[in-house]
Design a protein around this nucleic acid. Structure first.
Lengths: 250, 250
DNA sequence: TGGATTTCTCAGGGAAATCACAGATTGCCG
DNA sequence: CGGCAATCTGTGATTTCCCTGAGAAATCCA
């Protein structure tokens, strides 16, 4: 049975709001404008308020005035070392969580201690779903946001825990690879909505992915094997339009 | 997250209005005048206010002054790259959704990232129904429009969900192909109104469709088999004039 | 370092969708 | 009622889209 009698929230997902009901504020700091634009677009789409800065000084200045609830901070800035920015940021806004952007290789040594303070990082090139998910986690745990927002997505008897990365259907645990997990998360954050292959590529794969669009088909195929295997299918193809997920009992 | 369905307007057609009740404003940017004219006509018909521009500079200038709620932007402009226009546009109007027009083959490489922020695209040659539908989706989700407007069309016991692409009659699910879906959407957006074969061809098929006009008859026939099969017919022929859809009980 | 896992490309197969064509049917007119 | 035009629909060719196996390349992990 179709359920056109019901509507999802405007964006088909739970809003993350501050306790007073105002939107979450996020400051994005990166010297590449294409990156700040990409992130701003994606994060605005989450319903958050975004400001961007291109260097350390701009970041600190904007932070003072904007009072963000979270910061996305590139480790490589033209005028200032990422750690320096972090230090000064902490003096102004001690409790604001920071999501670091860092090159793939430069990770281990310098980031290690950083996440101890409740911060987190992603490596470039990242996927938007990953950044959004990490940010949501940070904001949720920092207490800036309404606690109602929790980390478990549920569609039918399918459950996905964004914190523990655990997935189960009908109580049975399912192991997914990182990419499979992100794809499923994206589908489950937009239940009953057709998502085009382009949309999926844009959100789930890294922004610099240059490969064939049929990876999406491939990973849908993998997911089906694990999620739908033998059971009533939840992942559906809309030929010429895209894919969607919905509870089996309909 | 689910809310009860609100009542539909008598004609089953929900107007898309801004919160203050004024009409939605859309900026159309394409260097081919035949395209901007085609689009302007179709979009005005939706009750929206339209402005057109033929190049990047004109687009930015018009955007500043016109403050559109959405932009239709060709990726190929004479003076400026589509991505450049997008970037500058974003600086002025951070929250305005953009619908990109792009050549069919140019998709893979250049589109990357475009749908990331909730934007969307259609490939040339497009059908007007598709452009209108995508634009409505963008505007609805951007929050510029009244949130009550939802994505479900209802005529009698026939329901069509533009988000999930699901169609049902009397609670029974019906599978439609992409073309059947667009045709039915067009009919349902104009209930009780006779639509000529020419109108249907112009709105549902691509603007460069060169085939036989009797595809319309063929697809009406397909639709009847699925929608009306056995039941009281809702799709009616007005010989010499066209077709119309209306609730069965009248 | 070497094996296991994951990611992705490539290509074949197959199913579905689209559409042309033509004969059947229907409605309208005198 | 006969004839004409408009419409309907069965058939099948063609195209498009999607699925998936096989294996190469990259990555992870012990």
């Amino acid at each position: 049975m179709v359920t056109p009698m019901t509507t999802t929230s405007p964006q088909g997902r739970t809003e993350l709001l501050r306790p007073d009901g105002s939107p979450v504020r996020v400051l994005v700091v990166d010297d590449e404008q294409s990156i700040t634009e990409l992130l701003s677009m994606a994060l605005r789409y989450e319903g958050w308020q975004i400001r961007a800065a291109g260097d350390g000084h701009g970041a600190l200045q904007t932070a003072r005035e904007f009072r963000p609830d979270a910061v996305v901070l590139d480790m490589m800035l033209p005028d200032m070392d990422g750690l320096t920015v972090l230090g000064r940021l902490r003096r102004e806004l001690p409790d604001v969580p920071v999501l670091f952007l860092t090159a793939k290789d430069a990770v281990e040594d310098r980031i290690a201690g950083l996440t101890a303070g409740g911060d987190d990082y992603v490596t470039k090139p990242f996927s938007l779903e990953e950044v959004v998910a990490r940010l949501r986690g940070l904001i949720r745990r920092s207490g800036a946001a309404d606690r109602r927002a929790d980390s478990v997505l549920v569609v039918g008897d399918l459950m996905l825990d964004e914190d523990s990365h655990e997935v189960s259907r009908g109580g049975e645990n399912i192991h997914l690879t990182a990419t499979e997990f992100e794809l499923l998360r994206f589908l489950m954050r937009n239940p009953r909505r057709v998502l085009s292959k382009a949309q999926i590529l844009d959100r789930v794969w890294s922004y610099d992915f240059g490969g064939q669009a049929n990876v999406v088909e491939l990973y849908i195929s993998y997911l089906r094997r694990k999620i739908d295997a033998g059971r009533e299918p939840m992942i559906h193809t809309r030929r010429g339009a895209g894919y969607l997920i919905k509870p089996a009992t309909s």
